[in-house]
């Protein structure tokens, strides 16, 4: 039931919000102004819409991210550029060639360091280090590289690392890569650790030798 407060025009009613925000074109504005002169209903509507607009304008939202958001964006732009460059290099075979050449050397160097560290500790203490020697294990070099899924929780990561017998040596790098070491090189091989990491592919998105 309509209140008896004057003429109603459905088409002009639809324009009232834009009359209130001042963006109607001249012809439409004149039509609405003529409508307002003869319709109390339209005048009430405009008054309500003005009030609503004022309240919407005064609504306080939480602060926007500001400069922190800009820094985050710039990091992602940089990462994207590096990834694209990496993809382009792989397409040309440049990185593949270099990686193929250096990876065995790097692994061999890492293993040499591990063995040498073990020998030196054994010489100093007169004992061969065991898996229980946490201090020595923590000094083991990084032998693997991984990236984690963006939505992986700390608990997810902890469980995966424990199942692989690995711990974080350092990272993340700008590309989100973590370097891992074996907690106990005597108890777990790099291949076993990598297999365990790769088995958790919802948490670990990439895993390879360092």
């Amino acid at each position: 039931m309509m209140a008896d407060n004057g003429k109603r025009d459905e088409n002009l009613d639809l324009l009232l919000p834009w009359y209130v925000n001042g963006t109607l074109e001249a012809g439409e504005r004149q039509a609405v102004e003529a409508y307002l002169e003869e319709s109390a209903h339209a005048r009430d509507e405009v008054e309500l819409l003005r009030q609503l607009r004022q309240q919407v304008k005064e609504q306080a939202f939480e602060n926007s991210p500001g400069e922190l958001g800009l820094q985050r964006l710039k990091r992602e732009i940089k990462q994207d550029a590096e990834q694209q460059k990496g993809s382009a290099d792989r397409m040309t075979g440049k990185v593949l060639t270099v990686a193929s050449f250096w990876r065995p050397l790097a692994v061999a160097a890492c293993l040499a360091i591990v063995v040498q560290a073990g020998v030196m500790v054994g010489m100093n203490t007169g004992m061969i280090p065991t898996g229980g020697d946490v201090t020595i294990a923590r000094k083991a070099p990084a032998v693997m590289q991984v990236t984690f899924a963006p939505d992986a929780t700390e608990q997810d990561i902890r469980e995966v690392l424990q199942s692989a017998g690995a711990s974080i040596a350092d990272g993340p790098t700008a590309l989100g890569i973590y370097n891992l070491r074996l907690v106990d090189p005597n108890a777990t091989t790099v291949e076993e650790a990598l297999a365990a990491l790769r088995a958790n592919d919802t948490v670990v998105t990439f895993a390879d030798r360092y």
Partner: peptide, 23 residues
């Protein structure tokens, strides 16, 4: 259905909290 008219709701529209809740 039957909607209230503008004049009836004008006073409520002057309350910022109520408008925010309804938006």
């Amino acid at each position: 259905d039957e909607s209230p008219n503008a004049a009836e709701t004008l006073s409520a529209a002057q309350d910022a909290e109520q408008v925010r809740h309804c938006v």
